[in-house]
């Protein structure tokens, strides 16, 4: 087993220390980690799910627009960040693992280490107050 790059290790540690929900993915979009506040919103525990490929996490929560249309994964901020290597933001609905529909607001940013090494992305998300 190899260790992750230090930028990802420290990002995970920061996420683990925060009380806002955080997702951490690698360059392929594989979900490497999500923290306890994220577990609360998603209704599942990281220890139980472990890492997840992008096809799985991007559809698992059935992201939907305001009019109930299922969003294509490419429309999600985190997927856009991985593609463009730029920050992204968006609001949409998800179905949490306990079946509840939640409107969430997501801001994502790329992890670009020294010197210009693209290593993954982070998404911060929270329940939207603008429902």
């Amino acid at each position: 087993m190899s260790s992750q790059q230090i930028e990802l290790i420290l990002s995970r540690q920061l996420a683990d220390s925060l009380s806002i929900p955080v997702f951490l993915v690698d360059t392929n979009g594989t979900l490497l980690f999500y923290n306890e506040p994220a577990e609360e919103i998603l209704g599942m525990r990281y220890e139980e799910t472990g890492s997840m490929p992008p096809e799985e996490w991007s559809t698992k929560f059935q992201p939907q627009s305001n009019d109930g249309k299922i969003l294509d994964p490419s429309e999600l901020p985190l997927v856009q960040t991985l593609k463009e290597k730029t920050p992204s933001h968006g609001e949409f609905w998800i179905k949490s693992m306990n079946g509840e529909m939640l409107k969430i607001s997501v801001t994502s940013y790329p992890i670009i280490g020294r010197p210009s090494r693209f290593l993954g992305a982070v998404a911060l998300f929270w329940k939207s107050s603008n429902t």
């Binding site: 290790i9 995970r12 683990d16």
Partner: peptide, 18 residues
Amino acid sequence: ALGASDYPNNPEWTSGYS
């Protein structure tokens, strides 16, 4: 130890392990 909340139990998430 700074970068790992459960240090030293997770090689994948420990700086310098590889």
